[in-house]
Design a protein around this nucleic acid. Structure first.
Length: 442
RNA sequence: GGAGGGAUGGGUGAGCGGUUGAAACCGGCGGUCUUGAAAACCGUUAUAGCUGAAAGGCUAUCGGGGGUUCGAAUCCCUCUCCCUCCGCCA
């Protein structure tokens, strides 16, 4: 969420930044100036009357203590009541309207983010690794997986419908090995603390990271979650939604807390399954396991001081890249343009892995700096310089380190052999019980 | 699921419906003293909104929401969470 005072005094800049995203400032902010003014007027009116009421009530108390008659004052105060109720209601309604409007406004992108409309305008800032050359036609992972007997999409569809997968034998083991490998590297080498959060969260948490209220249709919810209430801006602390990413529970760990400056930066890594409705993606990526309703991911989350967030963003992105490098998977780093940057993010790098079976790069990690956008929504602050310092919003960051399912399929496509077997990357062999090659399962 | 108890500032913890935004203690910060430190003593120490050039003023906040009342941390209803006991259970 943007700061109301900031929007008020930088309206032109905010509108320009929203246009750069391809958003319509008028639709998002409406008549911000008018709403802002009406809100403040209503608050001032209501509060003036409240001050009068409080003053009279105190006088009533003083008279009563002296044993004198106070009915005249009591009548006067009672007469204020209807007017006060009305003013209070108006003020509260306008305040709610303002908050809901602001909660639907995306973050402002940083100045170095290239302007553009779609992923076509993203900027490749780095390429790593040599693409393997094959003396045969490399095949896509869905063919390799099915023929090796480690991937079963047909039975998954029977169990759960489209966009689910069943893994067997070395395939299941490979997924588990990747999770352990990633967590071990991030904790031992990059200094992250492993955390295992709940896989269901309440709507308040989803508001905190920015998925609600705007993106409810992308989420799976349970029977106690009320989508209509959420649309009205009511967020409960006792309903249940499936997490679309570990970013949600992990970032919300410190919701409504004030952190000690000395504790920053805080770095967490978490393995969780992720659940996404993929509502707007009908018919997209239907082959293979690129786009699933459930996939596994190892996530990186950081809480940092504002002045450190840019450097921490670079570091976090490097931490994700090192997984790809350790697995010797060619990739490129892409700086997302304004139009492709996510709702809550000020700046995002995507890491795209090379998939020779399909002859294209695919996103395998997305590393974002949210600056204070999430911290303001989730009320995550830190206090600088002991008790004297004023509390300030932290900056939050996160990135995939990595999407496990996509790493799995990248290994199949990059390490495939002419006979359809798949070599196990060296770094992964200890996690696979020493297995060097995945061959057809019985 | 049943019965009971609880939720107060950074922490512990008081609080007859009426100068209680809130005692006291701890912690933090500033100071006195000291060569320095400790101790002792003194002072200070919440958040947000509205208003104001500023100083300041006003409003709200004692888990969330609603109600009673001239007036609510205090009374009533409701929700959430925590604790104890019982039941069920991986």
């Amino acid at each position: 969420m943007l700061d109301m005072g900031f929007v008020r005094s930088n309206l032109a800049l905010v509108e320009e930044k929203l246009r750069a995203r391809g958003a319509d400032p008028a639709a998002l902010l409406g008549d911000f100036r008018s709403l802002d003014q009406r809100r403040r007027e209503a608050i001032t009116q209501a509060e003036t009357l409240k001050a009068r009421r409080n003053e009279l009530s105190q006088q009533v108390g003083a008279l009563k203590r002296q044993g004198q008659d106070a009915t005249a004052l009591m009548d006067e105060t009672r007469a204020l009541k209807d007017k006060l109720d009305e003013l209070d209601k108006t003020a509260a309604a306008l305040d709610d309207e303002m908050r809901l409007a602001l909660s639907r406004v995306p973050n402002l992108t940083r100045d170095e983010v290239p302007e553009g409309k779609s992923e076509a305008d993203n900027k490749t800032v780095k390429e790593w690794g040599a693409k393997r050359s094959f003396d045969f036609e490399p095949r896509p992972h869905w063919e390799l997986g099915e023929q090796l007997g480690i991937l079963d999409q047909e039975r998954a569809a029977k169990l759960s419908g489209a966009r689910f997968a069943v893994y067997y034998g070395a395939g299941a083991r490979l997924e588990r090995a990747l999770i352990s490998f990633m967590l071990d590297l991030h904790t031992a080498k990059h200094g992250y603390t492993e955390v295992l959060p709940p896989f269901m969260v309440n709507s308040k948490s989803l508001f905190g990271t920015g998925q609600l209220p705007k993106f409810a249709e992308d989420l799976f919810r349970t029977s106690d979650a009320d989508a209509e209430a959420v649309a009205r801006g009511e967020f409960k602390d006792a309903d249940h939604w499936l997490i679309p990413t570990a970013e949600v529970p992990v970032t919300n760990l410190y919701r409504d807390e004030i952190l000690d400056e000395a504790r920053l930066p805080i770095a967490f890594t978490a393995y969780t399954p992720c659940f996404r409705a993929e509502a707007g993606a009908a018919g997209k990526d239907t082959r293979g396991i690129i786009r699933q309703h459930q996939f596994q991911k190892v996530e990186l989350v950081k809480f940092v001081k504002p002045e450190d967030s840019e450097a921490e963003h670079e570091k976090l992105t490097r931490d994700a890249e090192e997984i790809l490098e350790a697995l010797e998977l060619p990739y490129r780093r892409v700086l997302l343009c304004t139009g492709d940057t996510g709702f809550s993010s000020a700046k995002t790098y995507d890491l795209e892995v090379w998939l020779p079976g399909q002859g294209l790069y695919r996103e395998i990690s997305s590393c974002s700096n949210f600056e204070a956008f999430q911290a303001r929504r989730a009320n995550i602050r830190y206090r600088a310089g002991g008790a004297k310092g004023k509390s300030e919003f932290v900056h939050t960051l996160n990135g995939s380190g990595l999407a496990v399912g996509r790493t799995w399929l990248a290994i199949l496509e990059n390490y495939q052999q002419a006979d359809g077997s798949v070599m196990v990357p060296e770094a992964l062999r200890p996690y696979m019980g020493g297995m060097e090659r995945i061959v057809r399962q019985p």
